[in-house]
Design a protein around this nucleic acid. Structure first.
Lengths: 93, 93
DNA sequence: TTCTATTGTTCGGTATTTGTGAACTAAGGA
DNA sequence: TCCTTAGTTCACAAATACCGAACAATAGAA
């Protein structure tokens, strides 16, 4: 759960949930309109991956990540929705 | 949100929810069976208080804290339940 | 193949955050 | 008043996160 405690990771997950086809690091930082070094972005993705929140696979030169919706909903019903709803309410959008 | 990202604070909230009449710092650490210095416990309580998750009031020499259920549920419907459920599942109990 | 461009990871140093003990405040009772 | 218990504040230590540089992996062009 610690994975979802960071505001940057929450915003990444929020973006990923909008994109059925997944996102890579570069595209993510561009959508978040933040100047985050790729090393930092990579670390956030690693944490999300290791905690089972996202799944990544290589497509040529890039690594595309998606939220693991089904697995998350069965392990922690309603959790992601609640956290993201609360987060969005506090951060506008 | 950051207030509920720490495992110790989550366990404090979990204990508080069991106690209708509230808890103080000393009683909390004793129930959690952890050797946490009072300064650390005080900091965790301060964060929970400042983020509006708990409310504290003095009763003689001690400070009794309770979860602000109604306020939380109206601000973040379902959030606390979901987080605590997930947390309990991952930490036994 | 070799060169180049793009994406992402790893590593080491630095900066930020968190935890802790000591000193202090607050309150009640002897 | 003095003593005890509960909690806070503060300054420093420990742990964690961030970031740039070097590296690895892949693809396409020369």
């Amino acid at each position: 759960m610690h994975a979802l405690s960071d505001p940057v990771r929450l915003s990444i997950v929020a973006e990923l949930r909008k994109c059925e086809e997944g996102l890579n690091c570069v595209e993510t930082t561009s959508r978040l309109k933040c100047t985050m070094p790729k090393s930092t972005c990579s670390q956030h993705y690693r944490i999300l991956r290791e905690s089972g929140i996202i799944h990544s696979e290589r497509r040529g030169v890039e690594l595309t990540s998606k939220v693991r919706r089904k697995e998350l909903d069965s392990r922690f019903p309603g959790l992601l929705d609640s956290i993201l709803k609360a987060w969005k309410r506090e951060h506008g959008e």
